[in-house]
């Protein structure tokens, strides 16, 4: 056997080993979707928005509990930013994307307030009793609203839920992706329809001249 043959065999073995190791790794889903602009009268507010790394690069890891299951890494960060950018641009007259994290005492020019969203919790469920690919995703958001000079105005939480709407998808990855997209759509719907009802925002909204609504019972 020549040295070239040996190198070729070594390379082939390495590729096969890597392939086997890759098969053992967690399933990775980068959530992708299209999010519509909201059909809503924009509020007369110039809103600054800051997405921290915990939000813009958000992903969750679920380790398998048994050999039959696989571990999952679901990256929602890119889709989160895409959905919230589309939603906020339609909800407010102007949205300013901050390039630096807001801090107290440091004023941001030409904004009425700064919104900082966080994904506090994400859970997912697989119906184990059936073999159909229907996943459920539940998210809890926390929002901070800061004044232009970084002073906290309000803080509130909001939940969203999404479920794969069909059991006939080709792969588990597709099913998880669709459940995440549904959860993001639900988050946008919840935020857009309830923003003027958040009790913690009532006083500030009145100061901005925005008509407020009573919170739903």
């Amino acid at each position: 056997m020549t040295s070239a043959d040996r190198v070729a065999r070594l390379l082939l073995s390495a590729v096969l080993l890597l392939g086997l190791l890759a098969g053992c790794g967690p399933a990775h889903v980068v959530v992708e979707g299209k999010f519509p602009a909201p059909l809503i009268e924009p509020l007369p507010i110039t809103l600054g928005v800051w997405y921290g790394d915990d939000f813009a690069k958000h992903e969750f890891f679920d380790e398998s509990k048994s050999r039959q299951e696989s571990s999952w890494i679901v990256s929602t960060g890119v889709a989160q930013v895409q959905m919230w950018n589309t939603l906020l641009a339609g909800m407010f007259t102007k949205v300013v994307h901050l390039t630096r994290q807001p801090s107290e005492g440091e004023s941001v020019a030409n904004v009425d307030a700064i919104l900082v969203p966080h994904v506090e919790e994400l859970q997912y469920a697989i119906p184990r009793q059936t073999n159909i690919k229907v996943y459920e995703i539940w998210m809890r958001y926390r929002f901070e609203l800061l004044s232009a000079d970084g002073v906290p105005i309000a803080e509130w939480t909001m939940t969203s839920y999404g479920k794969t709407p069909t059991g006939f998808l080709q792969s588990d990855q597709e099913a998880v992706n669709l459940a995440a997209v549904m959860a993001l759509r639900d988050a946008g719907a919840n935020f857009a329809t309830n923003f003027t009802r958040v009790p913690a925002l009532q006083g500030w909204l009145r100061e901005q001249g925005v008509p407020t609504e009573a919170a739903a019972p």
């Binding site: 909201p38 809503i40 639900d186």
Partner: peptide, 13 residues
């Protein structure tokens, strides 16, 4: 239709 009238015909709204 759901995209055209988002977010008014989502499951919660």
């Amino acid at each position: 239709f759901l995209n055209a009238v988002y977010p008014w015909f989502e499951p919660r709204t």
